[in-house]
């Protein structure tokens, strides 16, 4: 029963990654990045690894997205 949840999350991960790569505007892509990180955190929790899940929650959801948003704001083409 837990396998159905695991494969559903993997499918959602693939959908999120494809939307993040193939969209036109760059700000849409950077909005979808924390969702990718959140799904990754849930997959680490299902695989019984709380330490890696804490590190991924801090880096992927918090810091990487903040740096990307600030960098995109400073550029025009």
């Amino acid at each position: 029963m837990i396998d159905i949840l695991f494969y559903l999350l993997l499918l959602f991960l693939i959908i999120t990654a494809f939307f993040m790569v193939f969209t036109k505007d760059l700000s849409n892509s950077v909005i979808t990045l924390p969702l990718f990180g959140a799904i990754l955190v849930i997959i680490f929790v299902i695989l019984q690894a709380p330490g890696v899940a804490l590190a991924a929650a801090i880096m992927t959801v918090g810091l990487t997205t903040a740096f990307f948003v600030i960098t995109i704001n400073k550029t025009e083409y």
């Binding site: 929790v45 929650a57 801090i58 959801v61």
Partner: peptide, 12 residues
């Protein structure tokens, strides 16, 4: 993990 994730979601 849920507590840390909630804090960083708000900051994000």
């Amino acid at each position: 993990v849920a507590l840390v994730y909630g804090v960083f979601l708000f900051i994000n």
